[in-house]
Nucleic acid binder design. Structure first.
Lengths: 143, 143
DNA sequence: TTTTTAATGCAAATGATTTGCAAGAGCGTT
DNA sequence: AACGCTCTTGCAAATCATTTGCATTAAAAA
């Protein structure tokens, strides 16, 4: 067996190995991120966490998000407007389409776009470290 | 004759028409934006403007950027890290490649990528209002 | 269970950007 | 050229999201 795709890495184990303590707030936040389907911001995570343990503070949410991001457990997205939003990592790479009316985030992926990006960067003499492709739109009125 | 591409719109005229006053700070800031080749942030614009008229305030820079953005005279970009950066509008649409080491911004355009974006949005039932494609990279080491 | 030291909660600090307000300056009019 | 109406400005204080200092609490090592 290997730990490639197919089942998510065991972050708790990974944290223990790195000497990072598994605390109650961290467990709760990781659980929230794992269960959620959307892309919540720190305040939303704080509220969901508060519902489980009202003693959790917003600073801890922020600190934990930074920690998890550093571990590669989550991705941080700075979409337009206000706060950063998060999603658990582990899935395939994808880009985002943001619904301007609802704030909903739809994930998509295009190998052709990725390839074109590489091609462009190469032709400009650059190596891409990472990129950001976000489409902002609204639901089509008539099909 | 028409006022399509080829020469930049006369924003001062447009402002007068809209009842917006042509003030000294606004003139200076517009001039800075027009002359600049890079993508300065508010603080850089403030410093360049201060060199011309030291009485200009940072708030006025921010207010003017917002005004010009509303007029379509400039574009605001929220690249990674800190402050928003601006560029005068008027050119063709393009995306950006940001040099992670220097902060330099290289503009590029790909009709194929644009077309693919449209195609993706359409297939998801959306109309794109605007998008954001940013490549973050470093200069290729060996060619 | 005692110790060691990282993690937490709270409040205060940051950094970018915005805003309230009194003073100042465009510009259409006289 | 001076007048007056308001839009603009500069300054300081306010916001907003996020970070940080510090005394206290709590993992996990002994």
């Amino acid at each position: 067996m290997n730990q490639h795709q197919n089942h998510k890495p065991d972050y708790e184990r990974e944290m223990r190995r790195a000497g990072i303590r598994i605390t109650r707030p961290r467990k709760i936040i990781l659980q929230i991120l794992t269960e959620t389907e959307d892309h919540p911001d720190a305040m939303e995570i704080f509220q969901r966490a508060s519902a489980i343990d009202s003693s959790i503070s917003l600073s801890t949410v922020y600190r934990t998000m930074k920690l998890l991001e550093g571990m590669g457990a989550i991705h941080r997205h700075a979409f337009e407007g206000g706060r950063a939003r998060f999603e658990q990592a582990g899935g395939e790479h994808h880009d985002h389409l943001i619904d301007l009316d609802t704030g909903d985030v739809i994930e998509f992926h295009s190998n052709r776009i990725e390839a074109l990006q590489e091609e462009i960067a190469r032709s400009l003499g650059y190596d891409i470290v990472h990129h950001r492709l976000e489409l902002y739109g609204r639901k089509r009125k008539k099909g």
